[in-house]
């Protein structure tokens, strides 16, 4: 019960923070809208998915990745910097406090992603298939984003540096999707634009469940994404015990 109360207040903090909404909701919607009006017609992209769908899914999952910066920011404020002593003086385990932050950020980021899904579905007719399945994929991806960012903020002493590393990883994942420019026909790049890239795992988990898609591929992609999430969760747990006590 207390966990939900704390999560609720953390959600309020996120909702009332305008910069995050602007960068991770409004800006992507503008980008998608601009590109969406340029890319029209029955042009087919990779895997037989329409180009607009392909571009939109990748953009949304990349933005979802940066949703992990919410957790970095809250955790830094509450447990590492400004509010550190106040939080530590509370009669509550640090792991419990952190869990409420993770839950709030994952929920908020998932909802933001889902708003973008609904927007692109209704405005540009992007095919998302089952919205329930999409919500599940978004939730798993959002958890992955939270835990990788948690690992970053706990392993790098300088908060600014951890933010920069997050940006490099996020942009790196985007580049490796092949969305920005074509990638060389090389085994590494082929792997990174399929199962080696969490953004592509998210994208393939969604598109695989479309009527023309491959459901088995969707399942494998989601399972792999869940596996990576579990890996970063364990890493974060170990780092958290060391850094936060």
């Amino acid at each position: 019960m207390l966990l939900f109360r704390m999560t609720y207040f953390s959600l309020l903090r996120l909702i009332r923070e305008p910069i995050g909404q602007l960068l991770l909701l409004v800006l992507p919607l503008i980008i998608i809208s601009v590109i969406g009006t340029v890319i029209t017609g029955p042009i087919k992209g990779m895997d037989g998915v329409p180009s607009i769908d392909w571009m939109t899914t990748i953009t949304i999952f990349t933005v979802q990745f940066f949703g992990g910066t919410y957790l970095m920011s809250l955790l830094n404020d509450d447990l590492l910097q400004t509010r550190k002593w106040r939080t530590y003086s509370l009669p509550i385990h640090v792991a419990f406090y952190s869990s409420s932050l993770i839950l709030a950020c994952a929920l908020f980021s998932t909802l933001q992603g889902f708003v973008m899904v609904l927007f692109t579905k209704w405005v540009f007719g992007v095919q998302w298939g089952s919205l329930g399945w999409v919500l599940l994929v978004l939730a798993v991806f959002s958890l992955f984003a939270q835990f990788i960012h948690l690992a970053l903020v706990l392993s790098i002493k300088s908060f600014k540096l951890s933010e920069r590393v997050s940006e490099i990883i996020g942009l790196g994942l985007l580049v490796l999707t092949g969305l920005m420019f074509p990638l060389p026909d090389h085994a590494f790049f082929n792997w990174m634009s399929s199962y080696g890239n969490p953004v592509m795992l998210g994208q393939r988990a969604v598109t695989g469940m479309l009527p023309e898609g491959d459901a088995a591929r969707a399942g494998v992609s989601l399972a792999l994404l869940a596996g990576i999430t579990a890996f970063f969760m364990i890493i974060s747990f170990i780092l958290g015990r060391r850094r936060l006590g």
Partner: peptide, 18 residues
């Protein structure tokens, strides 16, 4: 060390709950 994005009442509700 209060939360600037929460009202005074919400701040107290948060800490009181804990």
């Amino acid at each position: 060390t209060v939360f600037e994005d929460l009202t005074a009442r919400e701040n107290l509700a948060f800490f009181g709950g804990i």
